[in-house]
């Protein structure tokens, strides 16, 4: 791998984080240092290894499908920053073409 370099401004857009220019510059420096460090993983031969996404083998963990109570409507919206008629209030989602 080439010397890694992270485009923090681009990644921040993907991650939905409105960073300040100072944050963008600081994180670039911090994370490029981290990426240079993690590049050492290349030295380990993993050609015969399956990735381990989970520490224990758990498969098809399903519970019985039994009707039960769940959060009430009022509890579900109690923490909403904006709520109306028991629903989450959001800004207009379909934006007009510019």
């Amino acid at each position: 791998m080439d010397t890694p370099s992270i485009d923090v401004a681009y990644i921040a857009r993907l991650a939905k984080l409105a960073l300040t220019p100072e944050e963008t510059s600081r994180f670039s420096e911090d994370l490029n240092q981290v990426l240079r460090y993690v590049a050492q993983l290349e030295q380990w031969d993993t050609s015969e290894v399956e990735p381990m996404y989970h520490p224990l083998p758990v498969f098809d963990a399903v519970r019985e499908d039994i009707p039960g109570t769940s959060l009430s409507n009022s509890a579900a919206v109690a923490n909403a920053p904006a709520e109306e008629d028991g629903q989450f209030r959001v800004p207009k989602v379909v934006e007009s073409a510019h």
């Binding site: 923490n79 920053p81 959001v90 800004p91």
Partner: peptide, 21 residues
């Protein structure tokens, strides 16, 4: 949207997400 801090005076959904976070 559902809980936690929401930024004020945002311009559209994307701006709301990005600035709230």
């Amino acid at each position: 949207i559902r809980y936690g801090h929401r930024a004020e005076n945002t311009n559209g959904l994307d701006d709301l997400y990005s600035r709230s976070r």
